[in-house]
């Protein structure tokens, strides 16, 4: 690690504090996510995501008032959903990881907690095909309304044609003709 970058981790939050707060408030035993290279990260089961997020936002020692980013990663049978939260009051950040099945995966929408989640979840739905329960307006955002499939899934097949436009990959034999 560069000494210049090492200074950045001063704002890192102690993960045990968060785990204890969630245990006190909800009685849930959460685990730390070890795959985060930097900063603290915790794994939340999908059924208790909404209540944990509510605690993270409201608790006076945490005050995560901002959802910086929401995204997903398709890995084999699983869909990994990442939520990055930030607090301006304490200047700390946390990553929340929630794993749902890749096929027919469903999770509660957090757009009732952070309004900014509306568009972020729409993008995750559009590109990865995760269904967010209780989302007010779950429509495609980047792709056209009539697009088939979700392009950022690993099992996505590139269409050969869209609206009469040929999209077959260009091969050398084709160029010679």
């Amino acid at each position: 690690m560069s000494p210049i970058y090492a200074r950045m981790s001063e704002v890192v939050l102690n993960i045990d504090v968060v785990l204890n707060i969630v245990k006190d408030e909800l009685g849930l035993d959460l685990v730390q996510d070890e795959s985060a290279i930097e900063g603290s990260s915790l794994v939340v089961p999908s059924e208790s995501l909404l209540s944990v997020m509510e605690v993270l936002r409201q608790h006076e020692k945490l005050k995560f008032r901002v959802l910086m980013s929401q995204t997903g990663v398709h890995r084999g049978e699983d869909m990994l959903l990442f939520y990055h939260l930030h607090s301006y009051e304490f200047s700390h950040t946390i990553c929340v990881l929630c794993v749902v099945p890749a096929e027919g995966g469903e999770v509660d929408s957090v757009s009732c907690i952070w309004s900014g989640a509306d568009w972020l979840e729409r993008e995750t739905f559009d590109l990865l095909g995760v269904h967010f329960k209780g989302h007010p307006n779950l429509r495609r955002i980047m792709m056209p309304e009539d697009w088939e499939g979700h392009p950022l899934r690993k099992d996505y097949k590139m269409p050969t044609e869209y609206a009469g436009i040929d999209n077959t990959p260009c091969s050398l034999e084709k160029l010679d003709d």
């Binding site: 795959s35 985060a36 290279i37 990553c95």
Partner: peptide
């Protein structure tokens, strides 16, 4: 790079 995830601003 080693396996893992990171969010950088």
């Amino acid at each position: 790079p080693p396996a893992g995830h990171i969010y950088v601003r």
